[in-house]
Computed example of a mutant assay.
Amino acid sequence: MIDLSGRKALVTGAGMGIGQGVAVELARQGAEVAVHYPPFEKSADATVERINGLGGRAATVRGDLRVVSECRRVVDEAAAALDGLDILVNNAGVTRTRDFLEMDEEVYGEQFELNVRGYFFCAQQAVPHMLERGGGSIVNISSIHGRGGLPRHSAYAATKGAVDAFTRELAVELAGQKIRVNAVAPGIIEVPRYFDIPGYTTEFGNTLVPAGRVGTPEDVGRAVTFLASDAADFITGQVLYVDGGTSARMGLWWDQGDRPR
């Protein structure tokens, strides 16, 4: 049983997609949730409405986590709105697909500023708030791209490899202060932007995953909720793959009758 009653959580990039699924699942298990969303999104109302529908408590905070001072402000405002902070879910990120030889400094920098630097300084700002409450849990959203290669994702994959390394190091550094640090690495999680990819359909996505279906934001939310809870009290420094078996499958491929239909 997962019970997060009384816990205070900040989820970055929670206005839609995976972040929304995580925020709602934390609220479902009793946490009070600060829903962060970036300046280029209009609001996080949909997430707040879903949390309110569960009888939960939500606050919103807006900010550009590519900027270090904004990371600090967002965390402090979330802690003030919730009267404390026990859980940080670093989820806000950006994916940009480019051929390696076409990658430019601006697109490269944008991904590292948000996907790595944003995680780092949000975590740094969150730790003192957690220490005031006797400890806490940080969950970083990584990706299967941190483990295996896929063309046109060189910079994005590098950011997620950095997140995995950061997760392990910080877990060791903070273990003595009762702050656990883990990561969740999603595979194909169907979010609205997938349908902007030419030719993508749910049926096609299902054929790519050994489990025979694409994942949902709720799948990631359940994994994050587990890692943030006392049920995972002896788990730190780990990367949990939520990918329906994608990262476990051998890359050498030929059809031997075992491909999902």
Rank of each mutant, 00 (worst) to 15 (best):
L85S: 03
Y119Q: 12
V89C: 13
D99S: 09
L101W: 07
A80Q: 13
F112M: 07
Q111F: 01
E106A: 15
L85F: 05
G84M: 11
F121H: 13
C122Q: 12
L82H: 10
A78F: 01
V74A: 02
V75H: 11
F112S: 04
F112W: 14
V68C: 01
D64M: 10
I87R: 10
G63Q: 04
D99V: 00
G63I: 08
C71I: 11
V94I: 14
G118S: 01
F121S: 12
A92Q: 05
E110C: 00
D76W: 00
Q111V: 02
A78L: 02
G63E: 08
R72Y: 13
E77N: 08
G109Q: 14
L82S: 13
Q111M: 14
A59C: 11
V94Q: 07
G118F: 02
C71H: 09
V67W: 00
R66N: 12
A79K: 00
A81H: 10
M103L: 14
N115M: 03
D83H: 15
R72M: 09
E106M: 05
G84I: 05
T95W: 05
A79N: 03
F112L: 14
G109K: 11
D64T: 11
M103P: 00
V61L: 06
F100P: 01
L101A: 07
E102W: 01
A92C: 04
I87V: 15
F120Y: 15
N91H: 13
T60L: 05
A79E: 02
C71K: 09
A123T: 10
N90W: 10
E106D: 14
F121P: 03
Q124I: 04
V75P: 07
G63R: 03
V89P: 13
V116Y: 10
A92E: 07
Y108R: 00
R98C: 00
E106R: 13
G118L: 01
Q111D: 08
N90H: 06
N115I: 02
L85M: 07
C71D: 12
L65I: 12
R117N: 09
C122Y: 13
T97I: 04
E77K: 14
E113A: 15
V116I: 09
F121T: 06
G84W: 08
T97A: 10
G84S: 08
R117G: 01
F121A: 04
G84K: 10
E105K: 07
D83T: 08
R72V: 15
T95M: 12
